[in-house]
Design a protein around this nucleic acid. Structure first.
Lengths: 230, 230
DNA sequence: GCATTCAAAATTGTATACAGTTTAGAATGC
DNA sequence: GCATTCTAAACTGTATACAATTTTGAATGC
């Protein structure tokens, strides 16, 4: 009998979470000894996990200087949003051909259930989790493992900014007019109608609408990250 | 004065090349001691590089059993081709908006030059390098670093199969009718006309045309990989 | 105050050792 | 021949040690 899960993957998961949350400041140097104590593993497995995160773009590496948190710039966030459009639109196109009627119906039920919760949820983290979950389910319907992997990576690198964006939206957002369709509903409707063009257009519009706001949020993020207490 | 390039990144580059060429057989277990001798580094930096390749999908990892070459299945190759469509079509769309006229003219000159060479090149490796290069230049015009990174990864994981595909095409391919436009020319023309829809359609058709052939090539690849000498 | 120098401290890079686990293959029984 | 058991060899996982490099910060000169 042996452990199924490797120690490196446990450390990796913890680090990825930390990197997503910007527990490391942008461009901050990462101290291996300190971190290894914190995570209860020696530097050898820690560095193996850190190397994985470098390969995925969460961290960078400089010879003899070690590991650094990725930097956070409007350009970088824009790149990630554009990549999301690429991944999610193509996945949606595939889903229009491949998803079964019952899979689409299931997603519809999920959407209906969460949209009610969404309106009531105060916590932006909760809202974001619901939003991400809907988008991820859509990609899963495409049946493409590579697109799924890409979206997971993009989501984790973008999450912090989306959270800031959501917090700002909460303050000034009006309630949606009852009867008006949410962006998610419009996407799902087009999918149910197997209308790839309409679905893609709805998805593209939906993501790009948030892109501009998100690049603005980068500046806000800076102030939130670099001020310790407020 | 110090080395600019780290040892790990040297080992990584060598391993990535090997993984792209299927120097490791699909599903083959990788022996760390042997490989570390071969690459002139101890197991510590070797494993750091191997972990990067796991994160990128070139290899897999099982606790207490070590590293394995990714498996090679028609489904996997299809996923990668579909991801290429996602990345390259969106990049092209962005390029239509962003590329300067002179950048497009440069790419046109490059295309004209290589298409002549392409017809004469016997070596499939050369042909593939030219093809990849054109596609990569297109993505670079989008100015999106994330899409660029994705395409690089996809290219390396797909290359071996494309090579097999090209070898098969050589045997039965007819010469293109003079005056008829190559797929690359059609894409470039649409780009020059800033016609994102036409460009995307041409790109999609171009990649998908090879996708089916490539999944067939997987079976051929198996026979080539598993027969040592022929 | 500001730049420069330099030695001490901190940190990274990697080889190695060894414990823990898996694998290979011989021996055995059916 | 085929499955099972068991032991030795091979291999992986990780802590640790130490060399090489970078960083820190005090001392100095301007």
């Amino acid at each position: 009998m042996s452990k199924q899960q490797s120690n490196v993957s446990r450390v990796y998961a913890a680090l990825r979470q930390m990197a997503a949350d910007f527990a490391f400041m942008p461009d901050q140097r990462i101290n291996e000894s300190e971190l290894s104590k914190q995570l209860g593993a020696s530097r050898t497995p820690l560095r193996e996990a850190l190397n994985q995160l470098v390969a995925e773009g969460f961290l960078t590496f400089q010879n003899n200087r070690g590991f650094f948190c990725r930097s956070l710039t409007p350009k970088y966030i824009q790149d990630l949003y554009e990549a999301r459009v690429a991944v999610e639109c193509e996945a949606l196109r595939l889903s229009c051909r491949r998803a079964s009627d019952s899979e689409i119906a299931d997603l519809g039920a999920y959407l209906q259930q969460t949209e009610a919760e969404y309106e009531n949820a105060d916590d932006p983290t909760e809202r974001l989790a619901m939003d991400e979950s809907f988008h991820m389910r859509l990609v899963l319907l495409s049946g493409n493992g590579e697109l799924e992997r890409s979206l997971r990576s993009l989501n984790d690198r973008i999450r912090y900014i989306r959270l800031i964006d959501l917090q700002r939206m909460r303050d000034k957002a009006g309630v949606r007019v009852p009867g008006e369709l949410s962006a998610h509903s419009r996407i799902l409707l087009a999918l149910a109608g197997r209308d790839a063009v309409a679905a893609e257009a709805a998805m593209r519009g939906h993501i790009e609408k948030r892109r501009e706001a998100a690049t603005d949020a980068v500046r806000i993020a800076f102030s939130q990250l670099y001020v310790p207490q407020d």
